[in-house]
Design a binder for these strands. Sequence first.
DNA 1: TATTTTTATTGATATATATCAATCGCGATA
DNA 2: TATCGCGATTGATATATATCAATAAAAATA
Lengths: 241, 241
Amino acid sequence: MEPRRIEEACSKCKDHCCARCFDDGEDNIFNCLTNNELELMVKEKRHVHFNPGETILKQNTSASHVVCVKRGLAKIIAEGEGDKKLILRLVATHSILTGGGIFVDEIRHFTVQAVTEVECCFIDSDKIYELVSSNSQFAFELLKLNNRQNIQMLNNLVGITQKYMPGRVADLILYLKNEIFLCNPFDTRLSRQELADMTGMTMESFIRILKEFKSSGIIAVDGGSLHVLDEEALALISRKG
Amino acid sequence: MEPRRIEEACSKCKDHCCARCFDDGEDNIFNCLTNNELELMVKEKRHVHFNPGETILKQNTSASHVVCVKRGLAKIIAEGEGDKKLILRLVATHSILTGGGIFVDEIRHFTVQAVTEVECCFIDSDKIYELVSSNSQFAFELLKLNNRQNIQMLNNLVGITQKYMPGRVADLILYLKNEIFLCNPFDTRLSRQELADMTGMTMESFIRILKEFKSSGIIAVDGGSLHVLDEEALALISRKG
DNA sequence: TATTTTTATTGATATATATCAATCGCGATA
DNA sequence: TATCGCGATTGATATATATCAATAAAAATA
């Protein structure tokens, strides 16, 4: 009955689904497509629903599809040797996942897992190739997207190698507030372990830093919910540590 | 007399210079250009010579040009707060430098510095934009290039966050041998400090690991020259540590 | 060649962070 | 309500790596 569910889900958002779905995101790389192109792309796409914890894409499998996240929150995980994990970033509603290496080796270089319930659609990579060929603006948008991710990863790399733990935690909190949840007391939906995995440190260490911030009055913590009280202080810690 | 020198250098490699120059590199993204397109691109390019240590591109300046390295070796440096440096990778003969963010913010996100003498040409970013628009194959090649760099950085990030020092040094040595110098006793041309900056560790720590490898008979070291004696062992250390 | 300056190496020590183990809190289950 | 189980928290300790300081070697300069 799997296929059935997919059909049903799609029927709700017919007509240029993917363009509509990204109207308010900055990542809207589909705006530049003509109706025909959009039709082509949307025609064979598959709409899929994931429950929290489910794996959307698995590292080292072949990258035959691109994924558009229409609703929900997912985490991008680089899996290392011996169940070591590093969460590279989160993807929220209105994001595109090109999967790591569609243009190079057609292999996924990371795993994507649902944090909340996730609605997304899978688009065949071939369609993307076709669109890159036929629409240069689209190619341009993809280059932009790629570039942006590149820069983000670079900043991450520099941060993790050059900052002490407080700086890294400050960076994480600011990232969550300003780039993912976009509101102030925000519910991370992530466990302490997952938050720690975003900073490349141990859960215990992460908790200790969080406690420090809390007792300094920089943030308020209530379970998975974080409240930034002194963003200036966080920015300072990010720069200095 | 600066301009004069540039003119002279260029005259040696007239006619589709950039395509010719990359004949044997895998990075040849210019193969797909028509003669006209090539002409357009090459016409206003500027050939420049750098001495060892000179800065080719500087972080945080505006990214108005793309650089093709025709001969020599350069290092890509991410500069952090307070003269902390991280050398991201090396670029050797036949490489292209898109500079970090030409498609996003037009800002360079890293510094590039000559290690040996470097011959390169500067191509106006506008030409690149034009080519992306007019030639989809070229866009495709750029996407590939971007993707490859993304993956390399990802592996770097995972390695640096998840491995102990011996694993990171092993990775570095294998990278230098198999991806940059492509021969076995190879002369790094880099100081110990620079090598350490590629692994995100201290010079002293780096030297200690190198010494360990040496006394284990895995490598032989003579000044800046490295000889890999037991690649299997290095690969093992890379995986385990 | 002699001398100065830089770079590489080694050793002793400090410290940031991880590991290990115990306890706490709290929702789920009975 | 009682009990189970699991994530969060805290504490004590271990360790990987950095820092600091001294020496050795090599390169640059006179």
